[in-house]
Write a protein that binds this DNA or RNA. Structure first.
Lengths: 181, 181
DNA sequence: GCAAATTAATGATTTATTCAAG
DNA sequence: CTTGAATAAATCATTAATTTGC
């Protein structure tokens, strides 16, 4: 449809960024005067009206809730039925080859899996990972929702330049780990 | 024949929350050992493998960038060519029918009405909002990207990383193109 | 209300690019 | 210049959500 030149507001990146910052900062349902202020401010970056701001917050909040609902329902599914098909493991017929990490080299070196190979290698050496190997069953026997959300101190809480920090861990030359799916 | 158990990882809400927190906290490309630690930690909440974590960060980062690129390109389009279909303005006579107002929010509907009427009234009185109509031109003549991002003091400002997926409209729908291997 | 059809979201793979080492 | 590791981009494929006709 070539019509409808621009029947609706098209937020500029700056506007979006500001709105999202505001939302993240806790503003979920601005009142009229807040909307007015926001609109005035954002009009600096492009055409905008109060209703745009209003609708943006409405939609954003709604979609947040929607996402949350979705997650919860999925979670309940999982809790109620943690391993939907436990028996199938014996029966894969290579309809779709799980060629994930076959170090056996049937397919020549798949580049994308380099890191993964390293991962598996590390996992095998077992420095940290308690869940030894990538097995089939779940690692828990209580409901996951009942477990506390403990905190890790894996990394600096703010890091932007993570570009080249994975260089020296383990070069894969002795990777014979096979994830038997 | 019952198909494969579950061909792909389905993150639990806890896992998702942890991953998103980590991402927001600045972890964009975890290295091998980080992935191992994260995997070990998340396996507490459900079955997970290193590759899942790896892929999750890959995809999340990629889609973040993608979203950002889309925004920027759209923005540049708008800046460079504010009205891509100028001829249609002539046909476009209207104020858009207030479909908005009919969207039945459950508890927000009445508030929506009230707020919107207030807003429109204010906007019409033209206190702040310069964007008078929909069409033709922007209210600025310098590039918005050159404008500073000043901060409002409507609310506490805390900006961590970027976040959110506010469900863009464009979708390429590559699912139906049957390009067979 | 529901189940098939459609659409959107996202996990998993593949391909291309970048960059450093040799 | 070549090679290989790392990863960004593009694509494929499956699952969840939504729409639609009954």
């Amino acid at each position: 449809m070539p019509q409808a030149p621009s029947t609706r507001w098209c937020p500029t990146p700056e506007q979006l960024m500001v709105l999202e910052d505001m939302y993240r900062s806790g503003l979920k349902t601005p009142n009229a005067s807040q909307i007015q202020q926001i609109t005035a401010y954002l009009s600096y970056y492009g055409k905008i009206e109060g209703k745009n701001v209003f609708y943006w917050f409405q939609n954003h909040k709604a979609r947040d809730r929607q996402k949350l609902r979705r997650r919860l329902s999925r979670h309940h599914q999982l809790v109620l039925n943690p391993n939907p098909n436990p028996n199938q493991q014996l029966f894969h017929t290579f309809e779709e080859p799980p060629l994930y990490l076959q170090q056996g080299g049937a397919q020549d070196a798949d580049q994308a899996m380099n890191l993964l190979s390293k991962l598996e290698a590390q996992g095998k050496d077992g420095v940290i990972v308690p869940a030894s190997g990538f097995d089939i069953s779940y690692g828990y026997d209580v409901h996951p929702c009942c477990k506390p959300l403990i905190t890790l101190d894996l990394f600096p809480s703010k890091s932007t330049g993570l570009r080249d920090e994975c260089s020296s861990s383990s070069k894969n030359s002795s990777c014979s780990t096979s994830t038997n799916l």
